[in-house]
């Protein structure tokens, strides 16, 4: 025991590195992308993972990486200014310091999807943690079959990464369908729930891989629609959200059944989640 404990005493995983904000981009009225220079020892991240970002006296929150994991340069975090910490993070200017721990959590099975059709379903801010996967799918486009992004959000003004999505759509690498819950007259796109987009795309359900991220209610119905279309449960992957404090499975907050969402998730396959998603207040 003592040897084990002594060896483990070396570093404190709760200590953040101090990293530097190098850029900030406004995505929508309340969503910002924060660019942070990689701190010493940063070894990159996988699509779907998150960092813990900390500000002194305010607190620490999990924020998904939204940039290209293969691109050199700053780490991008897309954050919605909703709480005290996230609002302060969103307000950081280039040059500001921010505490950073990470990366944490499981990743989208991007490499594993090689050879298959890939259906990416995003709801609202859920597009942010999916964007790193989209970058990788585009970068190695020839390795995949058909790739479609189905994205539902609140209104045209809430569409994240809009210019980038338009550019991608023009380049015809991905089939991109965007729908909103409500729109004023000048919106030319779809209005309706995101699951209605599914019948519009061509894909081979049985062999395809689906990556889904959004509010839990949206993910439940998205998974049902994918199942109805014939996608097998183990090939549907959701990214769960729960309260995360430590990100290393020691604080207990993020438990979802027996899983710690911070380290066993956030990305988990639907066969593992299905029964639990039907239990209220789990």
């Amino acid at each position: 025991m003592s040897a084990m404990a002594a060896g483990a005493a070396a570093t404190d995983p709760m200590l953040p590195a101090v990293a530097r904000v190098v850029g900030r981009r406004r995505e929508t009225a309340d969503v910002w992308t924060l660019e942070v220079a990689p701190p010493d020892g940063w070894a990159g991240f996988a699509p779907g993972q998150f960092n813990m970002l900390y500000l002194p006296g305010l607190g620490e929150v999990p924020i998904s990486m939204s940039g290209d994991p293969a691109a050199p340069g700053p780490i991008r975090h897309t954050v919605r200014a909703v709480g005290a910490v996230s609002a302060a993070l969103a307000a950081l200017r280039p040059g500001a310091a921010v505490g950073l721990r990470g990366p944490y959590g499981s990743a989208w099975p991007v490499a594993e999807a090689a050879g298959a059709d890939v259906v990416v379903m995003a709801g609202g801010l859920g597009l942010a943690p999916l964007r790193p996967a989209l970058y990788r799918l585009r970068a190695e486009r020839a390795r995949y079959g058909r790739v479609a992004l189905l994205y539902g959000t609140r209104s045209p003004a809430d569409i994240l990464f809009r210019r980038e999505l338009e550019r991608w759509r023009r380049q015809l690498d991905l089939e991109i369908e965007v729908t909103v819950d409500r729109a004023a007259g000048d919106w030319r796109g779809s209005v309706g729930v995101v699951t209605r987009l599914l019948p519009r795309i061509a894909f081979e359900p049985v062999s395809s891989v689906a990556l889904v991220c959004g509010p839990e209610v949206m993910m439940r119905f998205a998974a049902d629609a994918l199942l109805d279309a014939g996608v097998p449960e183990p090939r549907i992957h959701l990214s769960m959200e729960r309260n995360m404090r430590c990100a290393i499975g020691q604080c207990g907050h993020c438990q979802f059944g027996a899983d710690f969402v911070c380290k066993d998730g956030p990305v988990m396959s639907y066969d593992r989640l299905r029964a639990r998603l039907k239990i209220r207040e789990l």
Binding site: S2, A5, A8, A9, D12, P13, I248, G249, Q250
Partner: peptide, 14 residues
């Protein structure tokens, strides 16, 4: 015994 040990506990335990 997890992927990341808690050094505070480890010190006290040792």
């Amino acid at each position: 015994e997890g992927p990341q040990a808690d050094p505070h506990y480890a010190r006290r335990r040792a």
